[in-house]
């Protein structure tokens, strides 16, 4: 049985987790599954009133025909306020949307995929934004890697998420280095290293928890890493992180090559 995908070690030597920790993780996994179901129900319930609020706010906007507002001293404020209501409803919608996605049980569809190609496709997607922000993106892909039996779109989702996090962690100039390599006889590694803000040691253990975020309110839902970790675990792999505050982080995704690694979580 695969323990889980949550090997978080600052120190690469501490690969093996003690048994009590494994038990704790199992308990955690059950809790998360229950939380997932609860979240999905909650998200569905909240979406309906959100739709009503948005619709009513839009209607109010339409009722305020040009000219009416000028009769009020605070006409502009009324309009701004309405716009803000709609904006915040959309913010809630993106949270419920992420919740549903988090809770969704996606049975992996296993295909032979070229990991270098998947990584490169996602790198190309973030390349422009990196350039705009003066971030140097470097690639170092090991050639002739074997095809991996895994779920392609789910792996793309993970890669895009990690790349986006890497870029977001950098303010000012910086570098994101992406590499792939054969990790061992039966697995591959994708490594995404950034020179960004890094993660404080006290947060390191929590970064894969749902809703945990160090971004400012409204900047992230705190589900990206949690979803990624869940996906990778389902694909039989692990995500590890090494980080030093102020120096950057390295996320390493290890994927099994063979289909045998894809036991369903």
């Amino acid at each position: 049985m695969h323990a889980s995908g949550r090997d978080m070690n600052q120190n690469p030597q501490q690969e093996q987790a003690p048994a009590w920790l494994e038990d704790d993780r199992l308990l955690q996994a059950h809790k998360l599954a229950a939380l997932g179901e609860l979240s999905a129900g909650l998200a569905h319930e909240i979406n309906n009133p959100l739709a009503v609020i948005r619709q009513e706010a839009e209607l109010l906007g339409e009722l305020l025909v040009p000219g009416i507002l000028e009769r009020f001293p605070d006409g502009q404020d009324i309009q701004d306020s309405l716009r803000e209501i709609i904006r915040q409803v959309d913010r809630c919608k993106s949270i419920t949307h992420n919740l549903l996605n988090y809770a969704r049980k996606n049975d992996p569809i296993i295909q032979a995929v070229d990991v270098n190609e998947i990584v490169e496709d996602m790198v190309r997607l973030v390349e422009k934004e990196a350039k705009c922000r003066n971030i140097l993106l470097t690639r170092d892909y090991q050639r002739d890697l074997p095809l991996v039996f895994t779920d392609a779109p789910q792996l793309r989702q993970v890669m895009l998420n990690l790349l986006n996090n890497a870029i977001q962690s950098i303010t000012g100039r910086g570098e994101v280095a992406v590499s792939t390599r054969r990790g061992g006889p039966s697995n591959l590694e994708v490594r995404i290293r950034d020179t960004g803000c890094g993660i404080a040691p006290e947060y390191l253990e929590r970064i894969f928890d749902p809703f945990f975020t160090t971004k400012s309110p409204g900047q992230g839902t705190g589900l990206g890493l949690s979803i990624s970790q869940k996906i990778v675990a389902r694909l039989g792999g692990t995500i590890r992180v090494q980080s030093a505050l102020g120096q950057g982080s390295t996320f390493t995704v290890t994927l099994p090559i063979n289909e045998t690694g894809s036991n369903h979580a």
């Binding site: 996602m122 997607l125 934004e129 392609a152 793309r156 895009l160 986006n164 870029i167 990206g224």
Partner: peptide
């Protein structure tokens, strides 16, 4: 190349 829309698209179940 909008990263945000890429993330949303993949979450919504796009293949690529």
């Amino acid at each position: 190349a909008s990263v945000e829309s890429g993330i949303q698209g993949m979450q919504l179940g796009a293949f690529d």
